[in-house]
Simulated assay, not measured.
Amino acid sequence: MIMLRSIVRPEKVDNVLAALMAAGFPGVTRMSVVGRGKQRGIKIGEVTYDEIPKELLITVIRDQDRDFAVKTIIKAARTGEKGAFGDGKIFVVPVEEAYTISSGIRENTDGSTEEVAI
């Protein structure tokens, strides 16, 4: 399993969520965040805004779905055909195991599951 952490423009988040749902990835956590990338913020006149509002989307998927999910996010989050500075970033992180709190079931990297004794 892998976790995709996608930082996208707020105006693109609904496009990304809809694209992920249509692609078969309904489980997403969404958070409003602020930050800056390589562009070091935005300068308007004499004022520099170095904390730019973004949305952080987190989803955990199977390893074999990585390329498809990443391409889905890029296509939905990109501004214009070639993209623009500030469109965002996707971070791919390995996940060793996941637990479902309500059932106590653990899902392992190989896709197997087992109930955890509580």
Results as ranks from 00 to 15, higher is better:
I61C: 10
G27W: 15
T48D: 01
A22G: 15
F25M: 11
F25H: 14
K43C: 05
A117W: 09
A84G: 03
K75R: 14
L56T: 00
V34N: 06
E114C: 08
R9S: 03
V116A: 10
S103Y: 02
E115Y: 02
A84I: 01
I90G: 05
V13T: 12
V8Y: 05
E115G: 10
I2V: 07
E107V: 15
N15Y: 08
D87I: 01
V60T: 09
V33M: 13
N15A: 11
Q39C: 05
P53S: 03
F68T: 14
D50R: 02
I7K: 06
I118N: 03
V70L: 04
G37Y: 06
K38I: 08
M31S: 13
V47A: 03
V95L: 07
E55D: 10
E46G: 06
R66P: 06
E114K: 07
E11A: 06
P94M: 05
L56G: 08
T109A: 14
N108K: 10
V95H: 01
R9H: 02
R36Y: 03
F85Y: 05
S103N: 13
G111W: 13
R5P: 12
S32E: 14
G45A: 04
E51C: 01
I7P: 10
R30G: 13
G24E: 11
R30L: 04
I118V: 02
G104F: 04
V93S: 04
V95Y: 07
M1G: 12
I7E: 05
P10A: 13
T29W: 11
A76T: 07
T48L: 03
K75D: 15
